[in-house]
Write a protein that binds this DNA or RNA. Structure first.
Lengths: 151, 151
DNA sequence: TTCTAAATGCAAATCATTTGCAATAAGGAT
DNA sequence: ATCCTTATTGCAAATGATTTGCATTTAGAA
């Protein structure tokens, strides 16, 4: 009893290997580990890049859960900080797992809609790098969000 | 006849003072200057910040045109490069006039949804500046768009 | 004034997402 | 293991933003 245990760090979806691990993450957020949730998390882990609800749904084994359930969970998890929501100009919201210390941006092809991650962090550097990789006709959209002084 | 005329620069919505000016801009884009279009452009000029379709519609004199017409024009003008479309996470697309050499970003209050322009261009500088202005709990979303090497 | 393609109005369709509600199922307590 | 409470789900209907089909109108060139 005299030896200090290391503080248990909050588990992450990404590091979770088994359903038990995922369940632990869910419990950490005071959520029940339903089989729907486990399946959705597995699907998100497999789905590349930020995925739209519909894409996650496709990645799910048939009849895993209802679309409404998926939407409910995605929104809830976003509020809890488990997921990040973003929009790339087509109608849908896209979600990706929040991994602390893995801050990054995205490049979206205007034509094929393919998405890549960008791990640089200065806009000029990024544009230069993208041009070197063959991207043309670049533009970007930078939005800040926060609470203003009145709120 | 011997003196060269300066090349007529493409007119802009912002600099247009009268309906005649606006009509000229529309003609420049091979579009007809219908009274609906003129009214919509006037409304957009008056509407602050990036405006959602519904907001532009409200700013229009009663019975100016149908919502469908408004949407059709906004989309068309975006494709022509007259407007920029952006999304701030609430369901709607927002549009703002494209003014060359007036590149800027936005800060959106997560609570009251008020939008301000940002005329700086380095992310660190911007965050510092925003903090000084009283914004808290900042995050940002930076997306690049372009044509990838295959497209 | 005439003519034709472009633009509009209106209503219905679509797409992503949300919601109400009754039925089901986690997981702590017994 | 069983019970109980409440979170979570499925289903169907509602919503909100945006789009589309089509017949009618209209801008602007001839």
């Amino acid at each position: 009893m005299s030896r200090k245990q290391p503080v248990k760090s909050s588990p992450t979806i990404t590091s979770a290997k088994t359903d038990r691990d995922l369940a632990e993450v869910l419990r950490f957020f005071k959520l029940r580990a339903s089989k729907q949730r486990l399946a959705i998390l597995q699907a998100i882990k497999k789905t590349p890049c930020p995925a739209a609800a519909e894409e996650v749904f496709q990645a799910l084994p048939p009849k895993t859960c209802d679309l409404a359930t998926l939407y409910r969970n995605l929104s809830q998890w976003e509020k809890l900080g488990l997921l990040r929501r973003m929009q790339f100009g087509d109608g849908a919201s896209r979600f990706e797992l929040v991994e602390p210390h893995h801050h990054h941006h995205h490049i979206v092809c205007r034509k094929c809609r393919r998405i890549e991650h960008i791990h640089l962090c200065g806009m000029d550097q990024i544009e230069t790098r993208l041009r070197k990789k063959g991207f043309r006709d670049l533009s970007h959209s930078l939005e800040f969000f926060g609470l203003c002084s009145r709120c």
